[in-house]
């Protein structure tokens, strides 16, 4: 464990806490893409298949449980909660996310560390996570204005993978035979997808104005 990875995990945790705060405090999920939340639940469920077979550390196990539980809780809340689900932007959240699942799975079959059930699903979860934010970014683009908590949620979600890139650089220089090129390339793509969001987020922060995404 190094400071970059720990900062990344904490940033990821903060993004989840901000999302939960937004939904429970405002009793609204407007501006949140249910499809992105579903993709993230799938990412965690397929990535942590080794939850009960490989024990890494208490920290690792607890964080995996928190990520799985929180992503499922958000999906259930957005689907079931009678108050929250009324605020879901159903007609704006129309990204065909099944294509993302299919593309990631096909790529995972072709490019993986080892052609085993667990490794294929691990690669699948890595590729899917890189694309999972797309429905959310499209939804924000369509809805134009971004409320503060949603903006902070997306910002922290993007920032966490940027910390992981620093972590991979650090591990590359400090550990022999460290090669996580599947996660590295995918993490780079993931972070680049946030680039324009980060730009408009920074502009709104500099002008102390409400965040506007160009229509």
């Amino acid at each position: 464990m190094n400071i970059f990875r720990f900062a990344g995990d904490m940033t990821h945790l903060i993004s989840i806490l901000v999302l939960l705060l937004k939904i429970y405090a405002t009793k609204s999920c407007s501006g949140i893409s249910l499809k992105t939340q579903e993709l993230y639940a799938l990412v965690f469920l397929t990535r942590y298949l080794d939850l009960f077979t490989d024990f890494i550390s208490v920290y690792n196990t607890i964080m995996k449980l928190v990520f799985i539980a929180s992503s499922l809780a958000v999906v259930c809340c957005m689907r079931m909660h009678r108050v929250v689900r009324r605020s879901y932007d159903k007609d704006l959240d129309t990204f065909r996310h099944y294509f993302l699942i299919l593309a990631s799975f096909v790529l995972a079959l072709l490019v993986n560390e080892k052609f085993t059930f667990q490794e294929i699903f691990w690669a699948f979860s890595i590729y899917l996570e890189a694309l999972a934010i797309l429905p959310q970014l499209v939804l924000l683009q369509r809805s134009g204005n971004v409320d503060n908590l949603t903006g902070q949620y997306v910002f922290f979600l993007g920032a966490y993978r940027a910390f992981y890139i620093l972590n991979w650089i650090y591990r590359y220089f400090t550990e022999q035979h460290f090669s996580r090129w599947i996660a590295c390339v995918s993490g780079l793509v993931q972070t680049v997808l946030y680039a324009d969001f980060f730009y408009y987020y920074f502009i709104s922060w500099k002008n102390n104005a409400k965040m506007q995404l160009p229509a």
């Binding site: 490989d54 890494i56 690792n60 990520f67 560390e113 080892k114 691990w122 972590n167 996580r180």
Partner: peptide, 10 residues
Amino acid sequence: TEAVRKHDEL
């Protein structure tokens, strides 16, 4: 043998 390395990252 290339033991399948554990994924120690989240």
